[in-house]
Design a protein around this nucleic acid. Structure first.
Lengths: 155, 155
DNA sequence: GTGCCTGCAAACTGTTTGCAGCGAT
DNA sequence: ATCGCTGCAAACAGTTTGCAGGCAC
């Protein structure tokens, strides 16, 4: 965990930005809650626990900065809120998401499922792909099992 | 074009909603500008040309209704605005988008490129897919050619 | 008259901006 | 002394809501 923070620190310095206490607290929250797809507000509240004097605007500015440095990605699952997701180190493509319509959980897929699809898009549509966003909406394993159980009970 | 309007009218009636003049004007705009990925504001301005007395709130309410009836889809390309896209009749899956980072154009792909991918997701992750969102960001054919031309000129 | 639908204005939510102050160099 | 960074408050943009009136049945 620490090494990732260090690497981010270096990335910032390389572009002559500083890793201020507020920025560090924000990055730490992102690292700790990596799987969580937090909104800016969520992050703000969590950062406040570490650094109570921080302002929401600072969180937004930090996130914008991290976005610019490609450390995080901004995603939008359809509710009006932007969520922030750490990019995987050493993974050139953006990972996919499985959003459960029952329980709202969000699972991540790091395997690149789109290699063939991208090839096809480049060949058949002449479109030079740089990045992608892929989200599936449906029912997660857990909720399927829960539903099954329920239907057996009512039988 | 008329037949699609008729069909939508029937869909509304089936759920005991009325196709009021305002709703009709809104749907007509959506049909006429089908390829355009309009925002609510865009739609509002276009509808105003047909029905100047309409209010923005009505447009929002109509779009919400159409969303509920699965006639349109709400999409978000990352700028803060929701855009509305007519679903293709007789196409069960939601179509894909190619967003050009150079010129901002948005191209649609109606072919379902995700059949194999969805199968894999169901099998390997146990996730029961209902719908998907796939967007590619990159450079469209036109802009690639324009860039090529430019680079030849500077040679 | 009942109930759906509308326009308007106000409210709300998430995000951005302006500004004065602070702290490190 | 400069300059980047911060907190606060105000501004802003997109969307939603409350409400009184209107229209169709």
């Amino acid at each position: 965990m620490e090494h990732r923070l260090d690497r981010i620190k270096k990335q910032l310095h390389a572009q002559s930005y500083k890793l201020t206490p507020q920025r560090e607290a924000t990055v730490k929250v992102l690292l700790e809650r990596e799987e969580d797809h937090l909104s800016a507000e969520d992050i703000y509240l969590l950062v406040k626990e570490k650094a109570p004097e921080i302002g929401l605007a600072t969180v937004y500015r930090t996130l914008e900065l991290l976005l610019e440095l490609q450390i995080v990605e901004k995603i939008n699952f359809g509710d009006g809120v932007s969520r922030y997701d750490l990019r995987q180190e050493g993974l050139e493509h953006f990972h996919h998401h499985l959003v459960c319509v029952e329980c709202g959980s969000i699972q991540e897929i790091f395997e690149n499922l789109l290699v063939d699809v991208e090839k096809k898009v480049e060949e058949e549509w002449g479109f030079q792909v740089q990045d992608h966003r892929l989200t599936f909406h449906g029912v997660c394993k857990k909720c399927q099992q829960a539903k099954l159980k329920k239907s057996r009970m009512t039988k």
